[in-house]
Design a protein around this nucleic acid. Sequence first.
DNA 1: TTCCAGGGGTAGA
DNA 2: TCTACCCATGGA
Length: 299
Amino acid sequence: MEEIQTRLELTTTQSISFSAVVHSHGWWQLQPFEWDDGQGVLRCTQQAGEQVVELSFRQVDEHTVELLLQSEFALSAALQVDLQTRARWMLAVDEDLEAFYRLCQNEPRLAHLPLERKGRFLRSFSVFEDAVKCICTTNTTWTQTRGMVRRLVEGLGRSSPHSGRYAFPTPQAIAAAGEDLLRGVVRLGYRAPYLHSLAKQVADGALDLVGLRSSSAASSELRQHLLQIKGIGPYAAASLLMLLGRYDYIGVDSWAHKLVSQQFFHGQVVGEKEIQAAFEPYGPWRALAYWFYRYDEAT
DNA sequence: TTCCAGGGGTAGA
DNA sequence: TCTACCCATGGA
């Protein structure tokens, strides 16, 4: 069987840094993402309709990212449009960060962001995939998160007949796998029933996550909606809101306490209120300011 | 052995 | 709204 290649371009009005998007947070280390540092290519295998498609991203110039699609059969025009729309969303190329960049100029620790075109977050192929990954980051180490996601993808995702790489499993596949397999084989621990329930609701159509991308509802409403999902608490909801381009809520984890305590309160123990208040001057951009304030601590 | 990690659910106050 | 307690897993 011959492999079909389709080349598309993602063009932007504002200049972007592809590498900055890829490395904005840890998602590039989670399957089915695969980063080729030498080639500067980000790969991502996904199931689109009835076939497995491999997406490869590469920056051409500061306003253009190339999207190469490798598939088993020719892609219909409608599917190409869908994949291109998703790809633009994944790299957040349509996000306008100029207002945030203006705020960064007043803070020495963030002043480098506009210069390096940082601030865009890498998102998964679907909101469902982002939600699953967020649940897999809670109360565990990053190494275990990577393991859980890898077992999920390799155990339940369809593989490409050409590359052998696995796509992220569909909600239907995770729902059909059952809670026991998620616990015993994927080793999700107590997260197994949460993930199974989430997959089942999305597969049944009882829960619409796709609509969250284009929702005009206030962030507080979206947050309440996300908190209804079992397994998603304040931290995961804040993380997901960031991935939806809403930066109103800071995801408070063990690291947030440490950072704000050291940087703003001379090592004094702080609570969630102090953490949110520390970044209040950034208004609707507070979570983004917090993230890159923190990111520099880590690197 | 004990602690805890990019927390969350639940019961009880 | 806040607190205490429990929840799997695996590395330190």
